[in-house]
Design a binder for these strands. Structure first.
Lengths: 264, 264
DNA sequence: GCATACCCGG
DNA sequence: CCGGGTATGC
């Protein structure tokens, strides 16, 4: 079973990349972030025609997350929104239980964590609070037996090796010690960084800024992650970054990251 | 010698239509309106590569006019701006004397007349004042011997026969009696409506609004005109509307109109 | 740089 | 409807 996370930076603009990706990579589950559209505007028909069930949590202009689940896998227990703050209106979390005839079930979340910049604004405390809410929820998800995959754009660079130029990110919300500590606290709950567990090499990036020729200079960072519960980590067989998509015309600034789990 | 007028509604957006038009129709002089760009942003290199000299009067976002003159015709006495109001900053008038080895010279202007709507705003008096300034300047141009062609988007529907549904335009600045009288006053100075002189038929339109399916319903109007001085009218051999360009992808709402003059 | 949104002008 | 502009988020 292959599970992909991809911040598409507008589903409408990226549909010409998403549909061929679905056809060629045939992932079983896709976690999308930054849809930048309301639910009614999601190109549901096209994605369903590609063989996927669609669950979205959209909003106007910003954020927006979705889960695509390849038929005949079954989707249940869909949760929209991360618990812990009933005031939080931002569309950043969707979760579902996915099961199929030939595989053990997996609970999967598509997460778009707050960027957190500028650090001296309310955006940074919001980010840290979101990470803490996620930790508490992630802990709760370990209570039942099912494998859990928390996939998304975490907007956290876990280690210096996850940035081409870590110095440049020193005082950025994506790399500040508190952000990284909150990410490690997630791991400390018993979750495994799926890509890092499979590939210890430096220079593994998932995001290259549109500006300043970052892609051309390979000035990337690794901020899109799939965190696996122990039951999921036990099934981990491979992980990879679909870097080529950054080279297409009108690309997202993020590329897909995929983990492969054994049937169980 | 063929002279074309075309309101391109953004030269940048319409370059993919203009360049094939230049190659296929090979007009000798092209009068463009609504460039919607500053002079530095005009795609000069591409148009020069197509074999044309370029004279522009651009401004930011709105208006903007240009003259394209096919080599080896020579351009002289370029005038930017219509005389009569030193306060007028809008880029709506450019004029030049064009001469060649095998043809009598022609003085040509590319004109983008104010729309004038809403009628109850200063825009309507500005339109009428512009028409009056144009009449006085056009009169002066008759003083020397050269043929004159005043071509552009006049934003005037001269007669009911020049609109598919004249009733719909009854109280519009393009069809109000004062606008039409000002246009007739230009003709009264001795100028000839080139297209009308060649083709007396109804249903000859040069503009179809983007809205309300006007193109699909052929709800057009004739507002792009080439006015010929007596010396130019004597040389008039043909006139036509290049209607097919309205059917292309991402068209201008106006189409080119072309007159052919004998060498003299 | 590349996406939104909203405004103006036609 | 379809250009352009500005502002904002990342």
């Amino acid at each position: 079973m292959r599970i992909t996370t991809w911040n598409v930076n507008s589903i409408k603009q990226r549909l010409p990349h998403l549909l061929p990706f679905l056809d060629e990579a045939r992932p079983d589950i896709v976690c999308l972030q930054e849809l930048k559209c309301q639910d009614e505007a999601f190109p549901r028909a096209e994605v369903e025609a590609a063989g996927y069930a669609v669950e979205t949590l959209g909003q106007k202009a910003y954020n927006g997350v979705a889960l695509l689940v390849r038929k005949p896998l079954a989707v249940a227990e869909v949760r929209r929104g991360l618990p812990g703050d009933s005031e939080d209106e931002q569309a950043r979390y969707i979760e579902a239980l996915v099961s199929g005839p030939e595989t053990q079930p997996v609970r999967v979340a598509s997460i778009y964590l707050p960027n957190g910049n500028p650090v001296a604004s309310p955006k940074y405390p919001y980010k840290l609070a979101f990470l803490e809410r996620l930790r508490l929820h992630a802990r709760g998800l370990l209570d039942d037996e099912t494998a859990v995959v928390l996939a998304g754009d975490y907007n956290v660079i876990p280690e210096p090796a996850d940035a081409a130029d870590p110095e440049a990110w020193r005082s950025d919300a994506l790399f500040l010690p508190q952000s990284r500590a909150a990410f490690r606290a997630l791991l400390a709950e018993g979750y495994t960084d799926g890509l890092r567990a499979c590939d210890p090499r430096d220079g593994l990036y998932t995001f290259w800024d549109y500006q300043a020729g970052c892609w051309q200079r390979n000035a990337g960072i690794r901020i899109d992650h799939l965190l696996l519960s122990p039951q999921a980590a036990d099934r981990l067989v491979a992980a990879s970054v679909q870097k080529h998509l950054r080279g297409l015309d009108k690309p997202s600034d993020h590329v897909p990251v995929t983990v492969e789990l054994s049937a169980g």
